[in-house]
Measured scan of single mutants.
Amino acid sequence: DHDVVPEDKFQETLHLKEKEGCPQAFHALLSWLLTQDSTAILDFWRVLFKDYNLERYGRLQPILDSFPKDVDLSQPRKGRKPPAVPKALVPPPRLPTKRKASEEARAAAPAALTPRGTASPGSQLKAKPPKKPESSAEQQRLPLGNGIQTMSASVQRAVAMSSGDVPGARGAVEGILIQQVFESGGSKKCIQVGGEFYTPSKFEDSGSGKNKARSSSGPKPLVRAKGAQGAAPGGGEARLGQQGSVPAPLALPSDPQLHQKNEDECAVCRDGGELICCDGCPRAFHLACLSPPLREIPSGTWRCSSCLQATVQEVQPRAEEPRPQEPPVETPLPPGLRSAGEEVRGPPGEPLAGMDTTLVYKHLPAPPSAAPLPGLDSSALHPLLCVGPEGQQNLAPGARCGVCGDGTDVLRCTHCAAAFHWRCHFPAGTSRPGTGLRCRSCSGDVTPAPVEGVLAPSPARLAPGPAKDDTASHEPALHRDDLESLLSEHTFDGILQWAIQSMARPAAPFPS
């Protein structure tokens, strides 16, 4: 592969990997390779389809078979030569091979799209000592099968071997295949498990690692696999990028399955594409389908809103127990993405979901129960707010008499603000006073009005108090039968009158 990737590009890729991570280095090298001529790309395919690569990765054979028959990708048995050289000459001794072996032994695996480039050397060096003999053996194999790289107009793939297949390693990572398949204008990513390549439709969760975000852009890794992070704060999961590491605690105790298979379609829109997988259930989501939507993949363990709600429900009964003089119970939860139609709101002032922060849900004790107040519409209280300059209440639009249902020339009671006709409430011909108009209920007259088809109010509507207090003497005590009587009149003013009279009014101040 030294004929494909020059030394300066190799060093530039290593520097970019240390600065921005393996995914960015892979993407940059792939983009550079696509700008080369067809001879360089053909050399790339020839390096990929060597015999030892085909033996190690069985899924490469179907890719090789898909090439046109007129494309010669065979390799000479006596060494490598550029395709432009007409004579089959043995190339001179390859010093770059020693360079590659020494550099890969030092860096474990470079971040390139060629056999030198995919593992994360920093994480491997940190986690190597417990498994040094086995990992050293794996390093000797890295130059042979560490990076199976493929690129063409139909298929483009980048393979990364790992030393996680050490025997006896619980939940060992089998390997990473960062794979971009450009077929019919689409893009897919796969993962390699035990020599087999699994596409998103049959993606397997190998051991402790999972394909957290099938994305090839942005600074985030394709698999949430930063070796420096180790395990999740809650004892979460091992990262795919942690090559040759000792077994780590796999999943939280509440995880239903340690080796679950995540779905390959969004649980909201039932469509495929780039998904984020939940650590607590097999569901996966688009970032845009979450509520609120996320802009980037959160670091650490992530769970959907259903799993978060289940966790909150487990903690909430203990938080609601009476604990005198104790601060509110704080339950730190990872930043969760909410699927459509589901929402768990945190306290005000918290950062938005999706940031690399930890939301704190506070379970406050329930407030003391209070008697429910009568629910009145805002339009129902409008007549009470229509007060004239002299303190006389004006008529609201649409006000109707509670007896006849007519809204023409209605009066407004100064005591309960109900609309009424003087002739309907006082049919006996009582003279109307000039000021202080009161309806039949507030004036103490319980004589029913002779209106055909309208039920008369119940005599129990009024329960006047002592006459010594004029204001308190007109406080009506309405009961269920009074409400039914008012409802039978089918008037809004009657219902409003009952609601206003049912509310307690402050006692009249004593004259000074």
Rank of each mutant, 00 (worst) to 15 (best):
S254G: 13
Q325S: 10
P448S: 08
G465Q: 09
H421W: 03
V387Q: 01
G280R: 07
P249H: 08
H382N: 13
A417R: 14
P509I: 11
Q393F: 14
L381D: 10
A472F: 06
L290H: 06
P427S: 06
P293Q: 03
P351A: 10
N262C: 10
P292Y: 12
P448A: 05
D279V: 04
D469N: 07
E320I: 12
V446Q: 13
L333Y: 07
G405M: 14
P368F: 05
I297P: 14
Q260G: 10
L381W: 09
P348T: 09
A477M: 14
L308F: 10
V454S: 08
S306D: 08
G434K: 08
G434T: 02
R440P: 05
T358C: 05
C278N: 15
A456E: 06
L462P: 03
T331Y: 11
G280V: 13
D481I: 01
A507T: 08
L487K: 04
T358P: 08
D493Y: 10
E330Q: 07
P334M: 03
A370Q: 09
A472I: 11
L384R: 06
N262G: 09
D264Y: 07
S458Y: 14
S299D: 06
V403L: 10
S485K: 13
P335G: 11
P466W: 14
P322F: 10
E263N: 13
H363G: 08
F510Q: 03
A353E: 13
E475F: 06
E321K: 06
C439F: 03
T408G: 04
T311E: 06
S473P: 11
A467V: 10
S458K: 04
A399Y: 13
A463R: 08
L487F: 07
L252A: 14
P256K: 14
S306L: 07
V329D: 14
S299W: 14
N262V: 11
S512F: 10
L337G: 11
V446R: 09
L411C: 15
G405W: 13
V360G: 13
S441I: 02
C281N: 10
R270P: 11
A507K: 02
D271V: 10
A288V: 11
R345S: 09
L364N: 02
C424P: 03
K261N: 09
D482L: 01
L487H: 03
P459L: 10
S378P: 11
G244P: 05
R480P: 05
D409E: 08
H382V: 11
Q325N: 12
I297S: 07
E452C: 13
A472Y: 15
D445R: 04
D409S: 07
Q257C: 07
L364T: 08
G388H: 01
S441V: 02
E350D: 09
D469F: 14
P389H: 10
G494V: 02
P511L: 13
S305V: 08
G375C: 10
D264M: 06
W422T: 06
